[in-house]
Amino acid sequence: MVYLYVFEGAESEYVDDSVRGVTVSKANSVRGSTVIGQGKIDRQAFEYTIKQLNNYFAEAERASCSTYCESCLACLTGYLIYICTETHYEKCLRKVAKFVSEQNDRVYRPRGLLLTDPTTRGLRLIEISILDRPAS
């Protein structure tokens, strides 16, 4: 497995010297850098993936009137409203999962790679695994 992309505030890890994780600490928000090493990934495709993920996380963290109303309604109902509805953040995480799945099908699996959803890694990193056999 190769860790290519690390979210801000997390420790950088790498397995192969040609592909390294990058840590950028500007704030505590979920965001990362598009720096990658030489390898199997086209730089433009990787940058597009990371920028889209950053956009989805920025949308999830954005405060709006609807998120304030959602929080007030949750407080008034003793947070029982969350049994019936999804939060704005959960909806955005669902978009992230769908985007990662689409990127795997279109970009990464044909190149023998597998992009792991960052929500399964605690929003700390994106794990890109090198598959034994490329998808046919």
Rank of each mutant, 00 (worst) to 15 (best):
T34I: 13
V96G: 02
T85N: 06
L76V: 03
G9L: 09
R109Y: 15
K26S: 08
D105I: 10
L114E: 14
R31N: 07
P134A: 11
D117I: 06
T23W: 08
T120F: 03
R31H: 11
V100Q: 06
L80A: 04
T87M: 00
P134T: 09
R109H: 15
T85C: 05
C69T: 08
T34G: 08
G122A: 11
V30N: 05
T34L: 06
E70F: 09
V107L: 06
V96D: 02
R133W: 10
R133M: 12
T119R: 14
P118E: 09
A135K: 09
V24F: 05
V6F: 13
T120I: 07
K26I: 13
V100M: 01
S101R: 07
L114M: 07
A58C: 01
S18F: 14
L80D: 12
S33E: 10
V6I: 15
H88E: 07
D105C: 06
D105V: 13
S64I: 04
P110E: 15
A60V: 01
Y56N: 04
Q52N: 07
K51A: 12
D42C: 00
L76G: 01
S33K: 04
G78K: 02
V24P: 00
T87G: 03
D117G: 06
F7W: 06
K95Y: 08
C69L: 15
S33F: 07
F7G: 01
N104R: 07
E90I: 01
A60H: 00
V30Q: 07
A97W: 03
I128L: 13
L131H: 14
T85S: 08
R62D: 03
A27V: 03
K98Y: 03
L76P: 00
